[in-house]
Write a protein that binds this DNA or RNA. Structure first.
Lengths: 218, 218
DNA sequence: TTTCTAGTAAAAATCGATTATTTTGCTTAG
DNA sequence: CTAAGCAAAATAATCGATTTTTACTAGAAA
């Protein structure tokens, strides 16, 4: 097979995993919905084995729930869990940002400026999914040099959980400008190496997002 | 099929998952080892599909790594990662214990005393695996009423990671008495609702375990 | 002797078919 | 008319066979 094609092709299972993860985050499937194996096979045009492996991974990751002999379900949304996720994000991302401000080098500063620039440019003229992608990248770039692999892992996982709430909230898009302003300010505080203020603002930022996201419940 | 038997039987995949998880924690498979699918099929006497689903879940959980078309490997042990896991445990379990001391009720106090009692009784006269089980239960009971599902989830995950290091350390068994003494003291501080001192001691406890666990690397 | 390549063996990944379980809809007794 | 029980359909879970990919080995050319 062609070398270039070979590079791009991971296993079928991991491709399905990524597609399903995106669609779950985008709210393509309703909270609590049961996912029919047969339907998914048709939708994603894949065989049974790789599909089930992808679903198993998503269940372990926390985006799906597997019931005894009753297949896979999308997890429900609840205010209590959103509060839990929000508080965990505040603490973990806050801590990570403090560490990142302490350890981040010039390369980090460049990446951060670049990520913020791309995000601002995509503010209103690009499709939602693209802004979401850039938004994730920005928050990831912010805490990347914190020095802890496990901290970053948990943060990503919570981010995915949070996005399920945020993206299904009706008013989510209207807040973009306000959030972007906070992103801008976060970059400035980070470059100024003001760890304490940066952390405080990030926690405010998360709380604000959470208030909007609440509208997705009930 | 019989009702009682029905109760006990989860899916084949989840049974394999639990067995493999236990064996990985017990160090039955060497760090970095490649797991042969065919061999695993014979060992656990299962079919291909549920086995692969279990392996996929374990990979998502962080006990295995799946390489492109090269199957599943046990994750390596490294001092850096142990340090990372230890620091994360200190912070997350410390925080959780503070919350548990604040929110725990009488039921919690009873459970805690019971778990500690069982652990002390099993100190030297029972097989290792049983002590390990009771040890996990004790630490779980300690932080259980912290009020955050996600915090508990991350703590369990880190505990499993940590155990891979601790259980393969040669001197791990000799420390039991010292650790048990700390467990005793933790219970007393918890019942006395001394959140600050309890947290400090738990962090010491984790650090002590970590020093022993280090011997499993290189 | 070393390096490259073709061929073969081994292993992983995927597929379609089969089996077991749950859900649904109909029938019948109360 | 309701509800329990049974049969049929639908769906999930598992299995063995097939396909694809990688790892190994031997032989030829430099």
């Amino acid at each position: 097979m062609n070398e270039v094609l070979k590079q791009g092709s991971a296993t079928t299972a991991s491709r399905i995993y990524e597609m399903l993860r995106q669609d779950l985050l985008d709210g393509r499937y309703a909270a609590g919905e049961r996912l029919s194996i047969a339907l998914l096979r048709e939708t994603y045009e894949v065989g049974l084995s790789p599909l089930r492996e992808a679903l198993s991974r998503l269940a372990a990751y926390g985006l799906l729930r597997q019931e005894n002999q009753r297949g896979f379900r999308v997890l429900e949304l609840s205010r209590d869990e959103l509060a839990d996720i929000t508080e965990m994000r505040r603490q973990l991302e806050g801590k990570a940002l403090e560490l990142a401000v302490k350890h981040g080098d010039e390369e980090w500063e460049s990446q951060l400026l670049a990520a913020n620039h791309r995000l601002l440019k995509a503010c209103s003229h690009t499709p939602v999914v693209e802004w979401e992608e850039l938004h994730s990248r920005f928050h990831n770039a912010l805490v990347a040099p914190c020095g802890s692999v496990w901290l970053l892992r948990f943060i990503s996982q919570l981010h995915d959980q949070f996005d399920r709430y945020r993206r299904s909230a009706p008013r989510a898009q209207g807040l973009r400008h306000q959030l972007d302003a906070q992103h801008q300010e976060l970059v400035e505080l980070a470059l100024a190496r003001n760890a304490r203020r940066a952390r405080e603002l990030l926690e405010e930022h998360i709380t604000l997002s959470s208030e909007v996201a609440q509208e997705s419940c009930r």
